[in-house]
C-alpha cells in the first residue's frame, strides 16, 4: 500500500506541475495585460495622454515586463516555497488575502456537498437494490428522475422560500448579519453550518439522484454473484453480508467518479451561488479575468484543479483499499 501511495503521489505532483504550466499559459492568452488596464482606468477621462513609455513603466513596476518563463518560475516558486500566490493588482493587496476566506468557504461547500451526496445515495442505493421491484424501489426511481430533471436554481429558490417561511432562515449568504464580519468563533462556525446545508442540498440533489441509480445497478449485479450465495451458505448474517461482500465492490464506480462529482459541483456552484447570494470563487474568477488580474485568476484555477487532482488521488487510494487486486496489479 505504501508503494502504491507513493506512486500515486508522484503522479499527482507531475500532474500538478503540468497543470500549473497550462494555467499560466491560459492566463497569458487574453490580449493585453494588467498594465494596459491600469493605465486605462487611471487616466481615462482625465485628459492626460498616456504614452507607450508610461505603460511600460507601469508594466515594469508590476514586474510584468520580465520574460514569461522567468515570471512562471517566480510565480510557482512563490507558491511552493512561501505559499505566496502573487499580487492581486486590482485589489492592491496579495492574492492570498483576496482569495483566503472565499477559498475555505468554497471548500466547505464542496466537502459538505460530497459528504451529503454519498451519505444519502450509498445506503439508499443499497436498500433499493435489496428491495428491488418493491414499491419503495419504484418510488426512489421516480425521485431520481425528478432529481435529474429539476434545474438547480429552481430548486434553490424553492428551498430558500420554504426555509425562510418555516425556519425563518436568512435569505442568502453563508452568515447571518451578526457574524458577517465577526472573527471566527464557535458561534460563527455554527452559524455557517446553519447556512451551509441549503447550498449543499441544492448541489447534492442531482448527484444523489444519479448516484442512487448507480449504486442500485451495481449492487443488483453484485448481489447475484456466487460469492454472495457462498457467503450466505456459510451462515453470514444478512446485514453484515451485504456490507462485507456486495457493497464493497458495488461502491467502486461511485468512488472512482469522486473527481467528476467535484468537477460537476464546481461548474454548478456559480449559478447556485448567484441565486443564494453566496460568496465563492467562481464569481471572483470571472471578475479577475475581466480585469486581466492574472494572478488572482491563476490562483483560483490552480486551486480548483488542485482540489480535483487531489480528490482523484483520494479516490485512487480508496479504490485500492476497497479492491486489493488494484494495487497488486492483477
Amino acid at each position: 500500500m505504501l508503494r502504491f501511495t507513493l506512486e500515486r503521489l508522484a503522479g499527482m505532483v507531475v500532474t500538478m506541475a503540468l497543470v500549473s504550466v497550462m494555467v499560466f499559459i491560459i492566463m497569458e492568452i487574453p490580449p493585453g495585460d494588467y498594465a494596459d488596464r491600469y493605465a486605462f482606468r487611471k487616466f481615462s477621462g482625465t485628459g492626460v495622454s498616456v504614452t507607450e513609455a508610461d505603460v511600460a513603466a507601469i508594466r515594469s513596476d508590476l514586474g510584468l515586463d520580465k520574460p514569461m518563463v522567468l515570471r512562471y518560475f517566480d510565480w510557482i516558486g512563490g507558491i511552493v516555497l512561501r505559499g505566496d500566490f502573487g499580487q492581486a493588482f486590482a485589489f492592491e493587496t496579495s492574492v492570498v488575502k483576496v482569495i483566503g476566506d472565499k477559498a475555505w468557504l468554497t471548500l466547505g461547500i464542496l466537502l459538505t456537498t460530497l459528504l451529503l451526496t454519498y451519505a444519502i445515495s450509498v445506503p439508499v442505493g443499497i436498500y433499493a437494490a435489496v428491495k428491488r421491484g418493491s414499491a419503495v424501489d419504484y418510488g426512489l426511481t421516480i425521485f431520481s428522475y425528478l432529481g435529474l430533471a429539476l434545474p438547480n436554481f429552481l430548486l434553490a429558490l424553492i428551498l430558500l422560500y420554504f426555509a425562510n417561511k418555516w425556519f425563518g432562515a436568512d435569505i442568502g449568504g453563508l452568515f447571518s448579519t451578526r457574524y458577517q464580519d465577526a472573527p471566527w468563533s464557535l458561534g460563527k462556525f455554527w452559524d455557517l453550518v446553519k447556512h451551509l446545508w441549503l447550498p449543499a442540498v441544492v448541489l447534492a440533489w442531482s448527484a444523489v439522484a444519479y448516484q442512487i441509480q448507480t449504486m442500485r445497478a451495481t449492487m443488483s449485479d453484485e448481489l447475484n454473484r456466487l460469492s454472495v450465495t457462498a457467503a450466505r451458505a456459510r451462515g453470514v448474517p444478512e446485514g453484515k453480508l451485504l456490507l462485507k461482500y456486495p457493497a464493497r465492490l458495488a461502491i467502486n464506480p461511485i468512488v472512482s467518479t469522486i473527481g467528476f462529482d467535484v468537477n460537476r459541483i464546481f461548474s454548478e456552484l456559480p449559478i447556485v451561488a448567484a441565486v443564494l447570494g453566496l460568496t465563492e470563487l467562481g464569481e471572483l474568477l470571472l471578475k479577475a479575468y475581466l480585469d486581466l488580474d492574472m494572478y488572482v485568476a491563476g490562483a483560483i484555477l490552480l486551486l480548483l484543479t488542485f482540489i480535483i487532482v487531489f480528490m482523484n488521488f483520494v479516490s485512487d487510494l480508496l479504490l485500492a483499499w476497497l479492491d486489493p487486486r488494484i494495487k497488486l496489479g492483477a
Binding site: L226, S227, A233, R234, E238, Y245, L249
Partner: peptide, 28 residues
C-alpha cells in the same frame, strides 16, 4: 433471517460450488 437458519447454513450443512473462483470473494 432466523438464528436457527444461520446455524444450519455452514454449521450443519456446508456447500461447495462449481466455480471455485466465483465462490470466493476476490477482495478478501
Amino acid at each position: 433471517g432466523s438464528s436457527s437458519l444461520r446455524h444450519l447454513r455452514g454449521g450443519e450443512i456446508g456447500m461447495i460450488f462449481q466455480e471455485p473462483m466465483a465462490s470466493f470473494s476476490p477482495v478478501y
